[in-house]
Design a binder for these strands. Sequence first.
DNA 1: CTAAAACCTGACGTTGACGTCAGAGGCAAG
DNA 2: CTTGCCTCTGACGTCAACGTCAGGTTTTAG
Lengths: 135, 135
Amino acid sequence: MRIGELAARSDVSVRALRYYEEQGLLEANRSDSGQRHYPESAAARVQLIQMLYAAGLSSRTIAELLPCVDARVSTPESRARLAVERDRIDAQIAALTRTRDRLDAVIAFSGSPGSGCTYIADRDVAAQASHSVMP
Amino acid sequence: MRIGELAARSDVSVRALRYYEEQGLLEANRSDSGQRHYPESAAARVQLIQMLYAAGLSSRTIAELLPCVDARVSTPESRARLAVERDRIDAQIAALTRTRDRLDAVIAFSGSPGSGCTYIADRDVAAQASHSVMP
DNA sequence: CTAAAACCTGACGTTGACGTCAGAGGCAAG
DNA sequence: CTTGCCTCTGACGTCAACGTCAGGTTTTAG
């Protein structure tokens, strides 16, 4: 399939796919005229790339991990590399969980009866500030 | 306390604190000479800001949420706003969990006996890696 | 009192993952 | 053939959260 179709299937932009290639994350077969041509499997690959980007990994890190995932290259070093990133993601999940619980606590408190503050009475500072931040 | 001490306590840069003020996230009392002075509570505030940044929220979004969290301002709208961000974080946790499990699977597979690839036998594996993505 | 350290306000620089535009070529349909 | 969409390669633009530098004032240590 050509780049436009892969973009549509993967729900990423054509520009992003070319960028992935530039970063060494995604390769393409070229037709005689130079157009990129991808196998079906490319869609899964792009999805994986997106997952890793969403986990906060950089292009460079992804480029280092992908050969391990996809060609099953396994050395002690590559497994360690994968584990490092796995642990980073674990830590990130833990931090996000704390943040979510913090927000939950605030929501529960502010929504509880007797919190005594369903309306802004004291200060117009808050409302004023949140509007004045916008240009 | 002055900005340098707050920075040290919160483990963020002085520049970052000034940026937070610029974005309306953190206010400071000024001395006659114009130097910023913060109360003890500022450290907790900065930590909260960091948590929210780490959760992927923008300055603008944080500026909208902070009055709710910290002044206990509660309207149906503000609670809804908090809930929206909480749900976003939940979704992010779910996505990260899937990514982590995916990496775990790769690690388990590449490390398992009989994977037939405990160490690299051929240095040129990368060159022939053109197909076969994960199941 | 003096020198170092900390602080101030601009203002320009950085980085990553793209967006966007320009100009040129390619491909199936009518 | 030619119309219209798709694709190509540069190359500059963007945006957020700061980093960094310049040039000047303030606070603190000795």
